[in-house]
Amino acid sequence: MDEQKIFRISFFPHIRDKASTSRIMLDVIIALLPAAAFGVYNFGWRALLLILICTATCMLSELLWDVCMRRRIMLRDMSAVVTGLILALNLPPTLDWWAAVIGSVFAIVVVKMLFGGLGQNFMNPAVAAKCFLMISFAGRMNTFVFQNVASATPLEVLKAGGNVDLLQMFLGNTSGAIGETSALALLIGAVYLFIRRIIDFRIPLFYILTVVVYISIYSMITRGGIDGTFLAAHLLSGGLLLGAFYMATDYVTSPVSPSGRIIYAVILGLLTCTFRLFGSAAGSVAYAILIGNLLAPLIEKVTRRKTFGKGAHLK
């Protein structure tokens, strides 16, 4: 019991030192800048407004909470900024500002602060808030535009059996949530995260690999062969890249052990594809990540590293 307690404390990235956590957060923000910038370029001032509203509301919520609960004000670690930014990038550019505010407050207060703050949440705040908004304001969260005209997202087109332009999807000139359209921008950021060693390669690798395998098998069964375009379209569309590199990789809400992370990533892949192919297209990545977060404690329990010497004296 006691060793468990000690073992636990080293699990999550608790704040050992303000500087290191904020350094990590800063890197994540930098990595997200290409996608954010492209989102603003693609969708205009409304996207910028949402990004600002979300980040500001998240910061304000955390500040007010800390003040009201008389805790140390830890805004400087910038985790609230990251949450706000990720949430904004997941929203349709036409979302009403007050809905974004409600979502941001939910993310910080309910999902993070109520459970004890940084490092203690079991669920990804931005992702949970996105799903919360999808349920609360279903209509508003499902209207997407491109060049100010209502337009179906590439994923919706794909589901309906239409054709999509892969190049445009790669560059990002399509409709969708603010930060999810440009595969290029997201990949640039991902490379930065790898260089800075912020994220573990296992999660995005196995997540995407699982998706590839699943879709290939699906193609083989339903279309009699692997359809490269279909596969590529799925990889580039929806929130997959945004989720795989930026949301599923959150240290706090994913399993710690390497094998745990692989299991987690595979589960995410399976769920995402199942939701996408057999369910509604909206939010499949987000819901998959939430369920992954729920299973993470159990996955950890199953894949926990044995304490030193434990195996030996059982023989």
Partner: peptide, 29 residues
């Protein structure tokens, strides 16, 4: 460090609420 008023049943209800949100993903199926 759950805030004191939420210790016990309330925080578990919050977790259940978050679980309920997560399970909404299955609705499309």
């Amino acid at each position: 460090d759950v805030p004191k008023p939420f210790e016990g049943v309330p925080i578990l209800l919050v977790v259940s609420g978050l679980m309920a949100i997560a399970f909404y993903g299955f609705t499309g199926l």
